[in-house]
């Protein structure tokens, strides 16, 4: 066979593999780590799953900021457990990502050098206790809307991780809303604290659902691979329609003068989102981008001697066992 013929043959072969792959996805079959997959599928999944894992780990920081200052023992324990759950989510997701042939060290490297992104919402500061309520209610609320469809995404390890993540997230969301209820029913100072947190977290939460469909570069491909089931704008509408009555119920006001029920579309119309702010934060210039990254890099670098020690010790133990066996 000539070189050209070999090439043609290979293209045909990979085309047919790709066809089989696309058919499996269309039949809602799960793709598993050892299955053949197009390189682009692998790369897209590494990007999305790692972004998701990084968001969990960075997301520990703004809430971790209030653990030592939580106002009651019950709240302190609940917040600790919540932040710990996020570490657990990070762990499942990194593990899922590793099945695609990338190591955890490489993933961290991408995060620490700014090559990989994480959810921009965590670049906002947590300045009062009410922020713990607002994050649980709004940020976890928006996350669930993003994530529930992923429980049936095509890549098996990701879908299975997401089932566990979603169960815990919905618990977190209820916990956050419950903090808001308590504050909203509390003293005038507490109510003001709750309203102020809603004012600050509302718009970033809407942005969390991603750029508008017109601006979203990955949507079409991701929909095809069932990595996405609804567009960003659809998800945003769902979030708003679900959250507005919850705010009303506890007597808080959504900070959007243009928010209005639209009977025709059976959903809320809402005001313009400040996408300049969104891109500013995405590009690394939000209020806490630098602090978040510094905290991660610091923990990783300061932990190096500890991880090295664990490796060295494990090796010594292994050598001892080997010597005994001989």
């Amino acid at each position: 066979m000539s070189e050209k013929e070999i090439k043609n043959n290979e293209t045909e072969k990979s085309l047919s593999l790709e066809e089989i792959f696309e058919q499996r996805i269309a039949r809602d079959e799960k793709i598993e780590p050892k299955d053949w997959m197009p390189e682009k599928y692998r790369k897209t999944h590494i990007r999305q799953i790692s972004q998701h894992a990084h968001s969990e780990i960075i997301g520990m920081l703004p809430e971790g900021n209030w653990i030592t200052r939580a106002p009651s023992l019950r709240r302190k324990v609940a917040l600790l457990a919540k932040v710990q759950d996020e570490a657990g989510h990070g762990l499942y997701l990194y593990s899922a990502c590793e099945t695609l042939g990338i190591s955890r060290e490489e993933l961290y490297e991408q995060l620490h050098t700014g090559k990989a992104k994480y959810s921009s919402i965590f670049n906002y500061p947590t300045i009062t206790w009410a922020d713990m309520g607002a994050i649980g209610w709004l940020v976890d609320g928006a996350a669930i809307i993003n994530q529930v469809p992923l429980c049936s995404t095509s890549y098996g390890p990701y879908a299975r991780a997401m089932i566990r993540v979603c169960k815990e997230e919905s618990f977190h969301q209820r916990q956050g809303y419950e903090i808001m209820i308590t504050l909203a029913n509390g003293t005038p100072e507490q109510k003001e604290m709750a309203q102020d947190a809603l004012n600050r977290w509302w718009w970033p939460s809407l942005m969390m659902l991603g750029p508008t469909d017109a601006e979203s570069v990955h949507t079409a491909q991701s929909m095809k691979w069932k990595l996405k089931r609804k567009t960003n704008d659809e998800l945003r509408q769902q979030f708003i329609d679900q959250t507005v009555p919850q705010a009303e119920l506890i007597g808080l006001t959504i900070p959007d003068p243009d928010l209005k029920w639209n009977e025709e579309k059976k959903g809320y119309d809402f005001g313009a989102i400040d996408w300049d702010e969104f891109w500013q934060v995405v590009k690394g210039h939000g209020p806490c981008n630098k602090e978040r990254m510094a905290a991660r890099v610091n923990a990783w670098e300061k932990g190096k001697w500890v991880r090295d020690a664990a490796m060295a010790y494990a090796k010594k133990q292994e050598d001892k066992k080997l010597k005994k066996a001989i």
Binding site: L61, V77, V83, N298, A299, W300, V306, R307
Partner: peptide, 25 residues
């Protein structure tokens, strides 16, 4: 509790938070 989110790796972070949770319980 001060260490939650700042551990040398995720597994250790989770384990130390567990101990904090036990003690606070």
């Amino acid at each position: 509790s001060e260490l939650c989110g700042h551990g040398p790796n995720l597994e250790t972070d989770i384990a130390m938070t567990n101990m904090a949770l036990d003690l606070l319980g």
